[in-house]
Design a protein around this nucleic acid. Sequence first.
DNA 1: TTTCAAGTTAAGAATGATTCCTAAGTAATA
DNA 2: TATTACTTAGGAATCATTCTTAACTTGAAA
Lengths: 141, 141
Amino acid sequence: MKEKIAGTGLKVTHQRMVIYDAVLQMNFHPTVEQIYEDIQGENPSISLGTVYKTLETFVEYGLIDRVFTEEGVRRYDPNLEHHGHIYCTNTREIVDYYSEELNEIITGFFKKRKVNNLKIKNITLQINGDKIDPDKDITIK
Amino acid sequence: MKEKIAGTGLKVTHQRMVIYDAVLQMNFHPTVEQIYEDIQGENPSISLGTVYKTLETFVEYGLIDRVFTEEGVRRYDPNLEHHGHIYCTNTREIVDYYSEELNEIITGFFKKRKVNNLKIKNITLQINGDKIDPDKDITIK
DNA sequence: TTTCAAGTTAAGAATGATTCCTAAGTAATA
DNA sequence: TATTACTTAGGAATCATTCTTAACTTGAAA
């Protein structure tokens, strides 16, 4: 983990390691506030401003991604692997969805088309739906 | 336009007509602030709080949609037709993208799969890329 | 090991985004 | 025209994020 941060050229500070580790373990696309509260117990001197600043620095250096939401609040994703998101409107959860097959289909679709005035970086899916049993996992096979 | 609002069961107030008309004409997924500034000249007595409340009421009653962004600010879309969004990282624009064909491909893909514990409502594309010439349109043929 | 420069952070203030409150206004019905 | 339930203005309050500056610390060089 230390190497991950160092590998970007950033200085490896205690605060950055704590925040990065917290984000890696929170696999539910947390807000800044959730991350701050998660680390507060063991690290009461890390300030909220530092958490805000550090997360945006991680995004800028490619360590994590922001998550698209319609909420008006920032959320973060440590998972840099190409994937889509399932937005559960009833439980407010955001769940990762992977499909190499569908990714290839969509990529192929756009390769066949003439794209003018746009350099495509990546294409992902936003899947909106309602979770049926909040206590069980969502699976798509 | 009046009928659209009335058709939802909402009272047709002057403020609602002004705000709805403004949103219909702003085809760039505006923020609340942008909508408020747009109507201020001709309607200085409509308050910012009213704009916030009215837009969320329109979403609740199915007149407009919220737009997914990673910004931490609310944006709105009057276009209810099923479509995806092209997010231009360099110009910060959000452009609508339609493809009935791709929509059918994706819908078909999920129909063939076993989806557990999720009732899918809709699936949209999130296309991230860089606009090449900011003054020209993006087209995908 | 020590030094030091450059980058980082704490703390709280400031700013921006959104929600709440209440008295006053008004759309729509009778 | 009267009435009522819903809506709104205006500004306060709350929440989300950024800024400022003095103090701290990382990491490279000596």
